[in-house]
Simulated scan of single mutants.
Amino acid sequence: MKRAKRGGIPLAAAVGLAVASLATSLTSVAADTYMPACYKPAPGVTTTIKYPARPGPYRVALVNGYTGIPWRTQMIQESRAWAARPENARNIKELKVVSTGADVAAQIAAVDNFIEAGYDVIAFDPVNPKAFDAVIRRAKKAGAILVSFDNPVDNAEILQITPEWTRFESIRTQATLDQMPVKKGRLLEVRGPAGNAADRDLHAGVQKIVSNYKDIQVTEVVGNWDTGTVQKVVSDAIAVNGNFDAVTCQYGCQGVTRALQAAHSPAIPVGGDAANGFVKALAAQKLPGVAVSTSPGQGPVALQAAVALLQGKTFPTRAYLPIPYVLTKDMKPDVNYFPNLPDTYETVASYVDCGISFTPQEVNKFLADNN
């Protein structure tokens, strides 16, 4: 994939945690951590996390938060697909999945239930970054291992696996602004759920880049990562303010392209997600833009790490995942978007550096319901 540049510098370049848990080992981060090309130490992380190996097969739980979001649906499907593969199934006695919605108390209760039921490891995508200290202490006392993924928690006592969200948004915002013919005007920022750690860090990424452009003003709206909501708030923003000069959107970004089309907006730069409908729309509407991906393969990546921790493998205490992206001008059908697949399909289903790869056919064999 080609890298966009700014002033001859690659776009991606423009942009010691202390752990105390049951028998956890703290050492300097070194090349002997598990799959270092996948689980890369976050900048400034100088310690590792390791637990005594325990015999398998293991009881594994996955606790999702938000529901009704296609990314979460596919993440659960991919997690089940990964666990069903023979090489992984032999290590997993059972995998239980539960989605609790946006209620942080319900998510904490679900984690507690799995701790009390004696599960070996619980991977969870946290609703709120600051609410999990008490349940982390309870897991430690009970001997359960917790792994957070996707959205980080503000707690250094468990393994955290996440994209570097501020850099993620810096890549998207920089690529969007790079495609503005004149670096001045109004940028519409479509944010996610209030109070969410990823939204917080993504917003910081926008601010980091926009601070370099004194003639660009930002208008914020909240799309809640939902395509319908995004379409409404973008349409409302255009109705109130007139056309914008660029848009950056966290997720549900097909709502942006629909709103722009309905408003007969000029072909302005749009930065968004990697959902099939959005990427197809960028190509079809000839919008200069960028699709930046956090793959739903994060679920399997987290489960892979969870099993490896149970087997005594070593990880950096906070691991950052790769950030794939592609510009409209480089998009190709059946490579970056899929004309014959649903709009909700996440076009980047894999993390190749993590050994995680799926076909749509494999993913669609599995359901995303609670069990």
Rank of each mutant, 00 (worst) to 15 (best):
G277I: 01
I356Y: 00
C38R: 00
P43K: 13
K2T: 10
Q179K: 13
K232Q: 15
D215F: 04
N241F: 09
E169L: 09
S21P: 04
P339S: 08
N128H: 14
Q304M: 11
S265E: 08
A262S: 11
P181A: 14
A156H: 04
A262T: 06
V256G: 05
L22R: 12
R90Y: 05
A237I: 06
T328L: 04
P316H: 05
R186Y: 08
W82D: 05
C38P: 05
A23D: 14
A349N: 08
A262G: 03
Q74K: 06
K232P: 01
A175D: 06
A117T: 04
S295G: 06
F366G: 09
L22M: 14
E157Y: 02
V279A: 11
Y320M: 12
P86A: 15
Y34C: 07
A305D: 07
G56D: 10
D103S: 09
V270M: 01
W165M: 05
F278P: 01
T166Q: 15
A123C: 15
Q231F: 05
L187Q: 07
V307L: 13
T173I: 07
D343I: 07
D154E: 13
A83H: 01
R6P: 03
G312S: 08
C354M: 02
I161H: 00
A156F: 06
R258D: 13
G252W: 04
D226E: 13
L62A: 05
C354S: 02
R137H: 04
A84E: 08
M180Q: 08
T314E: 15
Q311G: 10
M331S: 09
G185L: 02
Q250M: 13
A142R: 05
E169I: 04
G228Y: 04
I69L: 14
A139D: 02
V363Q: 03
G192R: 01
A144L: 07
R3S: 14
R3C: 07
I76M: 06
Y51P: 04
Q179M: 14
K40F: 08
D226I: 10
A144C: 15
D103G: 07
G56A: 08
A156T: 15
K214A: 15
A267W: 00
D125T: 12
P324T: 09
G195W: 05
D178Y: 00
I108P: 07
P36T: 10
L341K: 11
N241K: 06
C253R: 02
T166G: 08
S148M: 02
K365C: 01
D330P: 09
K232I: 11
E346N: 12
G255P: 00
N241D: 11
V19E: 07
N243P: 05
G242R: 00
C354F: 04
N212H: 10
V292K: 00
I49G: 03
K286E: 14
V206S: 01
